[in-house]
């Protein structure tokens, strides 16, 4: 097990180096000129050239990349072109709000999705089931910024139950977490429904019923836990979807996380920040996948380590 984890972790470092190379190439190909951007419109050609030299932008591509990689291995993500601050400082300041939001988002999608999935499965082919499945379809397909603005309009602006936007209190967390979880909830509802239907037809459920257990007990003690197992293992893979979700949700709700940081950096072509956030997000996804694989191992003993 330890050897397996070690191998996977080493593999994840290779993946990250690969991702850094791809991102670096893509950003390198952008027509924006960072030196001219820093120098501003009033700068002379000499100033621009001087800045280019100081930042090492005049070096050939491979040398620039190796320099970046060298810094990266020492935990140095460079300095932002626009904010003129260490990228690692900016990310560190914004990581806690993002983790909080993602945690709450996962909670929201599981609570909503699993509950609806179970209900739909138990009322199979009823109006309720059909209604819920349509709703989950909407959840999966609705753009998050539309959902977010709708929630703000109804629950914050019209009803005044929650703050319009911002960060700080538990009330601030509710609407962004729901928006973030809405998409996943749709998936989980659908998966939980089919998983439940699967389990309900298994022999052990029929046996439990036959030995005289109440229907509620059978569902809660036998069917749901068994239906849940394959689904919970998916949560790790969810990290990727949530990562892309927070870019939109944080911007809509004024949530001070790395998604908002990335969005602002993209708009201002602040390349070091784009690089930094991409790598942190990629790393989170790699860890999430590893987590999912390990979890699957416990859920299904038939899976062998290789």
């Amino acid at each position: 097990m330890a050897a397996y984890l070690l191998r996977r972790l080493l593999g994840s470092i290779l993946i990250l180096i690969g991702i850094s190379l791809v991102t670096f190439v893509l950003l390198y190909l952008l027509p924006a000129d960072p030196a001219r951007q820093i120098a501003g419109r009033s700068a002379t050609a000499a100033t621009v050239e001087n800045i280019r030299e100081q930042l090492g932008l005049n070096l050939p591509f491979y040398e620039r990349y190796l320099r970046y990689l060298g810094g990266l291995l020492q935990g140095d993500l460079g300095r932002s072109y626009i904010q003129r601050t260490e990228v690692s400082t900016l990310i560190a300041a914004r990581l806690p709000p993002s983790l909080l939001l993602m945690g709450a988002g996962i909670l929201a999608e599981l609570l909503i999705g699993l509950t609806l999935g179970v209900v739909a499965a138990l009322r199979r082919r009823s109006r309720l089931d059909q209604g819920l499945m349509v709703l989950s379809f909407v959840g999966v397909s609705a753009p998050q910024f539309v959902v977010g603005i709708l929630l703000i309009y109804v629950f914050a602006y019209r009803l005044g139950w929650f703050p319009l936007s911002g960060y700080g209190t538990p009330q601030h967390l509710v609407l962004p977490a729901l928006t973030l979880g809405f998409l996943g909830a749709g998936w989980y509802a659908r998966m939980m429904r089919s998983s439940m239907l699967d389990v309900m037809q298994q022999d052990f459920v029929r046996t439990a019923r036959a030995k005289g257990l109440s229907k509620a007990r059978v569902i809660l003690r036998h069917a749901v836990p068994n239906a849940l197992l394959p689904i919970v293992a998916m949560v790790g893979i969810d990290v990727g979807i949530l990562m892309s979700g927070i870019v939109v949700v944080e911007s809509v709700f004024g949530w001070p996380g790395i998604g908002q940081l990335a969005w602002q950096a993209i708009q201002r072509v602040d390349i070091p920040i784009i690089m930094g956030v991409t790598l942190v997000a990629a790393w989170a996804i790699v860890i999430g996948n590893l987590f999912a694989d390990v979890l699957a191992l416990f859920v299904d003993p038939r899976i062998k380590l290789r």
Binding site: I149, Y157, L164, S165, G166, S251, V252, G254, W255, P256
Partner: peptide, 18 residues
């Protein structure tokens, strides 16, 4: 100075006096 606020939301908050 509160940053990270969408202009449209800022307008709603202004209307509310926040």
């Amino acid at each position: 100075f509160e940053v990270g606020q969408e202009p449209i939301v800022a307008l709603l908050r202004l209307e509310r006096g926040e």
